[in-house]
């Protein structure tokens, strides 16, 4: 892993969206090698918190630090992102989809297709994939970014039982290798992790 994040530290964070306070005075810390399961009802601000961590959104108050890096755009360079949308282009094959992001992140696709059980689908255009298969592509793409901090928004949604197992194992292996994962989820991840519930 080229970069590492020793810990992420959130202190006294306030999130406001459209004039509504999502959370106030939120503080927590995630050490390297740990996964954090971010839970809470719809609209409790899980996605907004992830976007703040990634540096897309500025918090109304409070600070976010990855080790000694605090600036939003600097923080983004540590982030592996698995968003709510799959970001799979319908007109490009699975392999082309992955190769593009591999190039963009100066990485390589390597064996990620096999790891996610996608080898069979490699030449298929994105438009023929099911929601679960697209999610697998997104997971493969997350893996190949080789970023130390994974921010994941509902990674288990639309996956079948085998897919959920693969996703959970992927997160566990990432953390075991010295990474950090913050995972917004409605379902238990099925791995050893810390929990944070947004009210």
């Amino acid at each position: 892993m080229p970069l590492a994040v020793p810990y992420i530290d959130i202190s006294d964070l306030t999130g406001i969206r459209g004039g509504r306070v999502l959370f106030r005075g939120l503080s927590f810390r995630v050490e390297t090698g740990r996964a954090l399961s971010l839970e809470g009802a719809n609209g409790s601000g899980k996605t907004s918190l992830l976007r703040m961590l990634a540096g897309f959104l500025a918090p109304a108050e409070g600070a976010i630090r990855f080790g000694d890096v605090a600036d939003g755009e600097e923080r983004g360079k540590f982030v592996g992102w698995l968003g709510h949308h799959d970001a799979v282009k319908a007109q490009m094959s699975v392999r082309e989809n992955l190769d593009f992001f591999a190039q963009l992140y100066a990485s390589e696709a390597g064996d990620t297709l096999d790891a996610l059980g996608l080898a069979r689908l490699a030449e298929l255009p994105g438009q023929y994939l099911s929601a679960g298969q697209k999610k697998r592509v997104a997971l493969a793409r997350l893996k190949l970014t080789k970023r130390p901090l994974w921010l994941m928004d509902e990674p288990l949604a639309s996956l079948d039982a085998a897919g959920k197992k693969i996703a959970a194992d992927l997160v566990a292996a990432h953390c075991a290798g010295g990474g950090i994962a913050v995972v917004a989820t409605h379902e238990p991840l099925g791995i050893d992790c810390d929990r944070l519930v947004l009210a």
């Binding site: 897309f56 983004g76 592996g80 968003g83 949308h85 970001a87 282009k89 992001f101 963009l104």
Partner: peptide, 14 residues
């Protein structure tokens, strides 16, 4: 790219 989430990933790239 904004609607399908690609732009987020592109923005986080180097």
């Amino acid at each position: 790219d904004f609607e399908d989430g690609s732009l987020d990933m592109i923005a986080l790239s180097p």
